[in-house]
Design a protein around this nucleic acid. Sequence first.
DNA 1: ACAGTTTCCCGTAAATGC
DNA 2: TGCATTTACGGGAAACTG
Lengths: 426, 426
Amino acid sequence: EKQPCMPTHPQKPLIVKTGVQFTTKVRLLVKLPEVDYQLKVKTTFDKDLPPGRVSRQFFILTNNTKVMDIEDYSNGCLSVEFRHLQLKEKKYINGTKGNEGLLSVTEELHSLSFEACFTVQGLTIDLETCSLPLVVISNVSQLPGGWASVMWYNLLTDEPRNMAFFGNPPRATWSQLSEVLSWQFSTFAGRGLNKEQLSMLGEKLLGQHASCSDYAVSWSKFCKENILGKPFSFWMWLDSILELIKKHLLPVWNENYIMGFVSKEMERTLLKDKEQGTFLLRFSESHLGGITFTWVENENGDMRLNSVEPYTKNRLSALPFADIIRDYKVISDRVVPENPLKFLYPNIPKDDAFGRLYNSQPSKVHPYIPSILIPISELRSNVSTSSPVSCQSPEPPMTPGEFDMLNKQLCFSMETKIRRKMAQWQ
Amino acid sequence: EKQPCMPTHPQKPLIVKTGVQFTTKVRLLVKLPEVDYQLKVKTTFDKDLPPGRVSRQFFILTNNTKVMDIEDYSNGCLSVEFRHLQLKEKKYINGTKGNEGLLSVTEELHSLSFEACFTVQGLTIDLETCSLPLVVISNVSQLPGGWASVMWYNLLTDEPRNMAFFGNPPRATWSQLSEVLSWQFSTFAGRGLNKEQLSMLGEKLLGQHASCSDYAVSWSKFCKENILGKPFSFWMWLDSILELIKKHLLPVWNENYIMGFVSKEMERTLLKDKEQGTFLLRFSESHLGGITFTWVENENGDMRLNSVEPYTKNRLSALPFADIIRDYKVISDRVVPENPLKFLYPNIPKDDAFGRLYNSQPSKVHPYIPSILIPISELRSNVSTSSPVSCQSPEPPMTPGEFDMLNKQLCFSMETKIRRKMAQWQ
DNA sequence: ACAGTTTCCCGTAAATGC
DNA sequence: TGCATTTACGGGAAACTG
């Protein structure tokens, strides 16, 4: 009967952080016969606790009762918006909390309930509804995990509230999952993932099953288990890249200049026959939130690929990425430093691609001599010969595989599906 | 009878930030005849409000009563330490707050009171004491202003609580003030200011009165009025330098490699006859928290001075200052870049001075080519001839003047005086 | 409109709990 | 002890408020 609207973290609905204000809205969808008194709505957190096991418990710190009002810009239905709500954890419930130890806090699902009661023609009517499952976090460091839960839940079930969802979470087919991943990039970074990029992600996540778009990925594989040999899971890695783009690479990403997700084999294949100075941009697979460039160098007729140590948010906040590309220099044995980056793959002259994105340095504070930071690599001749060519292209090999790209229509319908669901709560 | 001990911001006692925990301690200095019950102490914020005018009002959020205990490592006297105290502002006292509009929040003085009551041999005895004046802030951005107040108060009065002090604050002689300033640097940066540095500060603050160490500086001049032509006061400027040192320049400062405070004339005098490549380090006078180097260049037999655009905390957190000095390069018209910094004034070879402070780059993440940031200035030949030599040494001229350096003994006695006072509360 | 002041809250670091 | 989770709070920015 009523439609509640969810609290939102910046662009991330259904995640609430303790001690941070959130907003929620309920709408009464049925038209009531004239009610001559004001209709009060009360919101409660986790009203009906799941019977047995109880994990963390929270309560709403601030005032949780408000009167419904005729919605401004709408068909005159009643609605109420709770603002400045804030969650706090109940301490010392009864001894220890009975969490089964299997679920992490970001897999724990909660909900907001809304209740109202009114009398019409001697009839007392109780209204009640509640939100889609929420994830409660206490620090933004838990946001990626929480968001993974929200995505998985809404991707894989239509149940309005299955609080035990993560007790035995269903798998997602790669076709479903890749759609959501691309949607993440288009929503948060402004441009989705293309077929090739998704192909590399599929290989990374599925290995030998990558060719099968019906292959079902487990929740654990997606978000809980670490990538083999790395101290982070697939989603943590991907989300770190999303954050890097949002904060430091937005224009470059949106111009489609970042290939980003390329396997080692693919990189070599693409650059093999290219002119010296051809380069591409891709994300680090070994570290969280890093971007590097790989360029073609010609050494006595031998082609070889070099990659720079990845740039992370710290360095990028000192120096925008486009400027890094403009100014990057390699100096080998007291020769004049040279910028090895000439053509963005396949063959766009560097300045044609990045010219508009360069910063308008230098700064011109008069009596001073302007100074900029430039990134530089120093190659000693012994270093440059000590590593065999096969080691020059960094990071472990990825088995190439076929990958069924989702067509645009599917992609949109997915987007619509999630959007529709989210929209119910907005 | 009792000695309270003050809340502390990191190293800055007598300043309390709302919503942030602080600690305070009270000691009973007299030995009481055996008291067979526990002695409760209650602490109250601003217990006796000054009668008329009332400005902001605060209260202690957390539990404010505790039982005195025999102090662990001491002569067995009673003491109690309140931890996790937290201040919150009372809102909507009675309409508007009656602040006279003259004092800023960091000039508003407050205090903590401590009360206890006990009966001995039928006699009821009330004990009460209170703290030195406190400054309450709501954001760390107010810390410099608050600390200025604490310094000024404790420098210029021995009254234990004169809450109206800043209604008409006394002046400080330059001799008193310079001692405190030097003490600030030795306390927070590990090395005080020498005679020449204080001389430059004196000129900056006093102008033509700089030669007179008895000249009295007003509170307003020190902390409230902006420096002529600048959007900040003398103390805000100096404190920004202190912060810069604390966060980014500690080893360089403590090695005494930063001359720091040098007037334009003095700089020119010092460097005039020096060898090409001689440089000195000084703080920016035009911007908050900046450091630059000025070096000697020889151009067809003409000496000239160049200064680099000052480095501020943002750049220094991308690149440590010693590395900047090591790597700085000037490139003019496609010549091989050269580092113009050779000898730290007067004539210490650069690497002798800074060698130990260089970072141990590069980082060696194997498959990648390591990359570092280097600071670089590009000189176009037309630029380098367009500005007359007289403009090369930046920032407006400072009238040189004589300055009576405080001798070391005075310096210590000052330090002792403030320390003694602070110690009472610690 | 605006400046002084407070609130908000991310992101890092430290503390806490299990 | 180590890992998961929460708390603490500096710092930049937005919101507030006379």
